[in-house]
Structure formats: structure tokens, C-alpha cells
Write a protein that binds this DNA or RNA. Structure first.
Ligand SMILES: NC(=O)c1ccc[n+]([C@@H]2O[C@H](COP(=O)([O-])OP(=O)(O)OC[C@H]3O[C@@H](n4cnc5c(N)ncnc54)[C@H](O)[C@@H]3O)[C@@H](O)[C@H]2O)c1
Ligand SMILES: NC(=O)c1ccc[n+]([C@@H]2O[C@H](COP(=O)([O-])OP(=O)(O)OC[C@H]3O[C@@H](n4cnc5c(N)ncnc54)[C@H](O)[C@@H]3O)[C@@H](O)[C@H]2O)c1
Lengths: 231, 231
DNA sequence: CTGCTTTCGGTAAAGTTTTATCGATATGGA
DNA sequence: TCCATATCGATAAAACTTTACCGAAAGCAG
């Protein structure tokens, strides 16, 4: 309750903001390559199809400061975002379940670019164990617990069949995992101190489909009630 | 502005709710298999680690009605969720970009279960064209536009390299696509009437990593300021 | 140098989503 | 039969996110 003595306001950054930061980062990188030194919220917003005020608030949250009439300094703003998202501090992570999805993730070079080192995968299928994908070994699932512990792995990617999800989670938790990136369509039961980020792809697709249905109804209504606003 | 004459309250269901519905669905299916006829918000919330009041509001949004002291009828509630998420009305969809991620999606049987029929993939790589993945053909990218139009495809999955994302999007839009499920880390420019659902995996991982960092700071603070609340 | 315009930062308002409160209803046991 | 209790539905409060507003700073044109 009492404010910390000298804490530099470590106000948690809202999740929607965190999800937008990578877009700003990518665009500002492009500006750097184009040899531009400054970029304004207006420009960013225009390019990304967002509200300029929202962009400004998001950048403020990273600690970046802008100059009126000029915008934000490209280099320092990139640094601020990197700092904010922790692109610097490299982190080793594991993947559990080297099936279709797991192997796609293994092969993906994008993680390394933002400071994650996907070290190894684990699988229960003997036919997969021993193979490599993109230079990453697929190890025996039975070794998971021990290696999480010994290598002090904090984050694991979960890409096993739904039926195995909770069991693997329990193993990870017992081994001391701190966060799980969950691609299974299961709600995982974990202790309060363990974080879970759900990536429920089916749910996302359902949302899209539902919104499509809504928009159909809406535009139909509009066309009936006569509201052909097209600008 | 004026209320529609006889519309059955087509209030748009909030996205967070839509994303939770599949979890309820899956759990209630389990209850059906266990021969239970009713399920309460309390039970659901307990099992899924959610707030019971939230569960109740979510179910209300689907149109399901419950009985005090008893809960929600399993069969009718499943129907309500199916109806709400459109699990019934089957829909053909296309995938563009049959690379690592695209092929994992092609092989995934989950889409069919919720009413989506992933008909075909399209790729620019001649080495991939002509092959099949899980019985789904990989077709020449040049045929995309024509087939979207002729088959009246409304939803496309975008899994091409970021560099090609906008170009493919433009093609899809010109061909009359209505919604794009976007796995590239790019913000797509589309006309207002086209929906885009972004699935920015790197952004999600960044969020998780940041939250982990926050929780570390917090628990450290707590341990200093003495706040070992453990219940 | 002066005024015009763009853009920032802070604060306030509006909109959404989550959580709380409370009366009503139905069930099961006294 | 009647009471205690679990649970629902509705309404309200709280928390969070997005959007708006306004004064100040800084570049630019004349
Ligand atoms: N493939 C997709 O596109 C896709 C899309 C959305 C969601 N998902 C979800 O992702 C998960 C994985 O999907 P997939 O298509 O890769 O499935 P998959 O069957 O191809 O792969 C699962 C892998 O996990 C391994 N495995 C099983 N039990 C294990 C255990 N106890 N420990 C370690 N490894 C174990 C299997 O051997 C297999 O290699 C599923 O939960 C699925 O619902 C996948
Ligand atoms: N693989 C992953 O796990 C992963 C994770 C997160 C994000 N993503 C994103 O998903 C996208 C695809 O990733 P990937 O790993 O599958 O890449 P990939 O390179 O394996 O596959 C891309 C495919 O797209 C095809 N392609 C290229 N240009 C095309 C065009 N104009 N029309 C049709 N097809 C075209 C290529 O031939 C290739 O088969 C990328 O944008 C990536 O950033 C992938």
C-alpha cells in the first residue's frame, strides 16, 4: 500500500499496449533504415492504422520522450521499446511437444531476434527423439524435469495434445517453471506464482468468424434502413 | 440510432467473452460425457480458474438460461454456445503460405470440429505446389484470386513471410475476401469492411516475458517489505 | 522577430470489461 | 410443510482502456 521509497514508478504496462509495441518497433526500425532521425505519433498511427493519441500513450509507457513538432527520436525510442520488452536480456526457453506446431515453432527464427533462445524440444514419441529441427535437438520427455531445474529454465512453450497438457504442466511446475506459453486449447491449473499465456487459436478463429457474421447483419440492416455512408 | 422494430437484441458479444466460450464448451462437453444434466457457474469457474460471476455473464451473452440452485442445462447450453460461435454453419476457408506454420495449420484437425473446412493452401514456391498435406492440396499462388472469387471464400489464413503479407492481402481484398486471420507480424492495410484478426505470436511471447519480469520485481519487493501472504 | 502550425504531455471524459451486491427462485432436508 | 442454502438474473460499482481536449513547446515561413 505505502509507495515504495525511491521506485521509479514501475507501473505495470497494460497488456494491449505491450502487444502493440512490436509493431511500433518494426516500423521505427524501417524509419532508421530510411535514415530518418525522428518519427511522430501521427506518422506511426497513419502507417499502422491506429489512433495517434493511443500511439503517444503507448510510447509514453515505454519511457520514451518526444519533442513537440518533431516527434520521437528513432534511436532512443527503439532503445526504450527494446528495454521495455526485454529484447536485450537473452533467455533460454524450452518447447514441449515437437509435433506439427512444435516443429514450426522450432524452425522459426523470430524468437532469437527478440532475445529468446529456444534451446531444445522434448517429446514423448521415440520416433522423434534424437532428431533435430533447425539445429535444435528433440530430447526424451523424461529428461524435461531435470533439465528445467538444472538449466534454470523459466519459460516453456506447451504444444502437446490437449490430453497431455495438464500432466506436462504439472511436471513443469514441479521442476520450477515460472511461465508457460500455452498453445493447447486447455485452461491449465497452476499455482498463483506461475504465469500462463494462452494462445488459443481456435478461439481466435471463432472470434473472427463471429465478427464477420455481425458485420454481415449490420451491413444488411444498414442497407435496409438506408445508410450507405461510404466515407 | 432508432431501435430496430423486432430485432432480438443483437448486441455484439464482447471479444473477451467470445474467447472464453470455447473453454466453457469443452468443459460442458466433458460434463455431458459424465452423464451430468446440469452444470453451475460455480463449477465451471472452479474448473477453469475463472470468476463465477464472469462465467454467468458470459453464458448469459450466449442466450443460455439457467435455473437457480441447479445451474445450466448441459444440452441446451452447448447448443447455445454452438449457435453463438457458429459451430453449425460450415464455412470453407483458404490458407496462403504453406511453409512451416502453414503446414502445421493444414494438418490440424481442430478447425473442422468447429465448422471450418480448410479447403486448400496456396504457395508461391513451385517445389511445394502440387503436394498435399493431410489431404489438402497446395495450389499455385497465382490461382488464389480466381478461386477466392469463384468459391466465394470469405475467410483466409495468412501465413506468408512478412515481406509478402501486404501484397497477398491486396490480392485477397481485390478478390473479395471478407476476413483475414493474420499470422504475420505485420499490420495489414485493408478497407474498413474487411476484418483482420492478428495472431502476433512474438508479441504474445513478449507480453509473457514482461509479465514475468514484473512478477519478479514484485515478489522481490514483497520479500523486502515483508508481505509473505500465502493464502 | 512574430505569428502559424504541428506535436507533445498531462488531465479529463467516454467506453468496455470485470467484479460486487441483492433480491428472487428452486431444491433438499428438518 | 417450512427453512436453509445454492444459484440465477439484474443492476450497480470498480477497474481498466481508449479517446478527447487543451496548454505549452518548437520548428518554420514571412
Ligand atoms: N497444429 C496446429 O496448427 C495447431 C493449431 C492450434 C492448436 N494446436 C494445439 O497445439 C497442440 C499441438 O498440436 P500439434 O498439431 O502439433 O499436435 P501433434 O500431435 O502433431 O504434436 C503433439 C506432439 O506432442 C508429443 N507428445 C504427446 N504427449 C507428450 C508428452 N506427455 N510429453 C511430451 N510430448 C508429448 C507427441 O509425440 C507429438 O509429437 C495441440 O494441443 C493442439 O490442439 C495446434
Ligand atoms: N513458424 C512459426 O512458428 C511462426 C511463428 C510466429 C510467426 N510466424 C509468421 O508466420 C509467417 C510464416 O512463417 P513460416 O515459418 O511458416 O515461414 P516459411 O518461410 O516457412 O513459410 C512461408 C511460405 O510462404 C510462401 N510464400 C512466400 N511468398 C508467397 C506469396 N506471395 N504467396 C504465397 N505464398 C508465399 C513460401 O513459399 C513459404 O512456403 C511469417 O510471417 C512468420 O513471421 C511463424
Amino acid at each position: 500500500m505505502s509507495p515504495s521509497p525511491n521506485a521509479p514508478t514501475p507501473v505495470a504496462i497494460p497488456e494491449p499496449t505491450l502487444k502493440r509495441l512490436p509493431y511500433y518497433y518494426k516500423f521505427i526500425q524501417g524509419q532508421r533504415e530510411a535514415r530518418r532521425d525522428f518519427v511522430s505519433c501521427t506518422t506511426l498511427a497513419e502507417a499502422l492504422g491506429l489512433n495517434p493519441i493511443q500511439v503517444r500513450k503507448d510510447l509514453q509507457a515505454t519511457g520514451a520522450v518526444g519533442r513537440p513538432k518533431v516527434g520521437y527520436h528513432v534511436e532512443t525510442t527503439l532503445d526504450a521499446i527494446e528495454e521495455c520488452l526485454g529484447y536485450h536480456n537473452t533467455q533460454d526457453i524450452f518447447l514441449v511437444g515437437a509435433g506439427h506446431l512444435g516443429q514450426a515453432l522450432l524452425a522459426y527464427p523470430g524468437f532469437a531476434e527478440i532475445g529468446f533462445n529456444l534451446v531444445a524440444a522434448f517429446d514423448a514419441d521415440p520416433a522423434k527423439v534424437g532428431r533435430e529441427v533447425a539445429g535444435k535437438p528433440i530430447l526424451e520427455a523424461s529428461r524435461l524435469s531435470d533439465l528445467v531445474r538444472r538449466m534454470h529454465i523459466q519459460i516453456a512453450i506447451l504444444a502437446v495434445p490437449a490430453a497431455a497438457a495438464q500432466m506436462v504442466t504439472d511436471t513443469l511446475v514441479r521442476a520450477g517453471i515460472r511461465a508457460i506459453w500455452n498453445f493447447t486449447p486447455t485452461r491449465l491449473a497452476v499455482p498463483r506464482e506461475v504465469l500462463v499465456q494462452d494462445e488459443n487459436l481456435l478461439a481466435s478463429l471463432s472470434v473472427l468468424s463471429k465478427q464477420l457474421e455481425n458485420s454481415r447483419v449490420k451491413s444488411h440492416k444498414e442497407s435496409i434502413h438506408g445508410k450507405p455512408e461510404e466515407l
